[in-house]
Each structure stands twice: as structure tokens, then as C-alpha cells.
């Protein structure tokens, strides 16, 4: 299958390699990864940072988007589970559609799990960045749909946690449905005599 871009738009990709202190740089040769990134197709700007997620790192991204007229951003740092929302917001702040951002996981999936194989880990990091850039070339801007939130909450379980959560939400003015399997709420706590550390009654 030949991969061809549908759009005539000239791609301008920025790659941001994060050292994460020594979390990534301690295993992976980040400079080598940066140098390699420069050779990839459509990459017009590569920036290496100690902490890309910190304010200075994010400012570098915003600055580069404006200066280099970037239309794709690839950040090679940690797992998207933590910072994908951070960086999506960051590129959006700089006026780029957040879906034109791609994240490469050099930390959880590379540096932390290959601590004794520095060279091979660096090679893997290059491959992962290449894959991220390849994907970024095909990214398209997306618009997120907004859905309403029904102003009511379901709390499952009427033990101490369920009761507290239900009360907090209800006191905040929200409708709460509290479902308990047993004939009464109270859970395990209700069967206790006194509770530590205050030594007072549980009910």
C-alpha cells in the first residue's frame, strides 16, 4: 500500500525531545535522538529540553510553533496517559489544533525498562520518534463534540465512603442516588464498636 498524503499542505513538523532530568537522559542519548530527528522527512525544528512539561519547555513549544510556522508537533517524553492533555492544551494555546500533536513514550516504554542497554535503548528511541513523526504526517485537525452532563450522580455502596461521597455531592446541591445492596446503609463500619484514632462511636 503506497502511503500518500492527500493534502497539498506543506508539512512543518517540530520534534521536542525531553530529557526528563535523568529519567530519560540517564539511559538514552537524547542529543543523538535530536540529531536523528532532524534528518526525518518534513521535520523543520528540533528542540531538546530538560523538562518539556515544565513551563519553560512548554513555552519553547509555543515559541517554535509561531517562529517555525509548525503545523505538526511531536513530543518525545513520557506516557501520554500523564501529559497528553497538558501538551494538547499547550499547542492549542499556540493556535494549533490539539489533534495535530503526537506523543512518543521514551520514558515508561524505553528508558525505564532498558536501563542497562543504553545504546540499544537509544536506537529504539530513534525508531519510536520516527514512528511518531510518520504518524504525525498523517494527522488531521479534529473538533471535539461537546455533550451535556446530566446533573445527577449515582453512588454505588452505602458504606462509610458511599455515605460521605453522597453527602458531599448532595450538600453541593446535586441530586444523588445512593444504592445499597443490604437492607440498611452503614456497611462494615456500622458493625464496629469504636474506631481509631479518635476512639469514638462508629455510627
Amino acid at each position: 500500500m503506497a502511503l500518500e498524503l492527500k493534502k497539498p499542505e506543506k508539512l512543518r513538523i517540530g520534534v521536542f525531545v525531553c530529557e526528563c532530568g535523568l529519567n530519560i537522559a540517564g539511559t538514552i542519548d537524547c542529543s543523538a535522538v535530536s540529531e536523528y530527528s532532524k534528518t526525518l522527512e518534513d521535520v523543520v525544528c528540533v528542540v531538546q529540553n530538560k523538562y518539556t512539561c515544565a513551563d519553560p519547555g512548554q513555552n519553547e513549544i509555543k515559541k517554535a510553533i509561531v517562529e517555525h510556522k509548525l503545523n505538526r508537533v511531536v513530543v518525545a517524553s513520557c506516557t501520554p496517559k500523564i501529559h497528553e492533555p497538558t501538551f494538547r492544551q499547550c499547542v492549542a494555546d499556540a493556535g494549533l489544533n490539539p489533534y495535530l500533536f503526537e506523543m512518543v513514550n521514551l520514558r515508561e516504554h524505553c528508558s525505564w525498562v532498558h536501563q542497562t542497554e543504553k545504546e540499544k535503548a537509544t536506537e529504539k528511541a530513534k525508531d519510536l520518534v520516527r514512528s511518531g513523526v510518520a504518524r504525525a504526517r498523517f494527522l488531521e485537525p479534529q473538533i471535539e463534540a461537546e455533550v451535556p452532563v446530566t446533573k445527577a450522580a449515582l453512588v454505588i455502596g452505602g458504606g462509610v465512603a458511599g455515605i460521605q461521597a453522597a453527602l458531599d455531592l448532595a450538600d453541593g446541591g446535586h441530586k444523588v442516588f445512593l444504592v445499597e445492596k443490604e437492607p440498611t446503609i452503614g456497611g462494615i463500619m456500622a458493625a464496629l464498636d469504636k474506631t481509631y484514632p479518635t476512639m469514638d462511636c462508629s455510627i
Partner: peptide, 27 residues
């Protein structure tokens, strides 16, 4: 415990179980 039983904003279902959940965030 008493508070939750008489709170006007809390509807209590004891001796009850959640049988099915469908939908997605907010709905």
C-alpha cells in the same frame, strides 16, 4: 448515616442492586 437518610437531595435505594449501566460520561 441519619443525615443521608433525610437529605432532600439524596434518594436512597436500600436492598437494591445496580442491574445495568449503559451510556457514557455525562449520560
Amino acid at each position: 448515616m441519619m443525615d443521608v437518610g433525610r437529605h432532600p437531595k439524596v434518594e436512597l435505594f436500600t436492598n437494591s442492586e445496580v442491574e445495568n449501566v449503559t451510556g457514557f460520561v455525562g449520560n
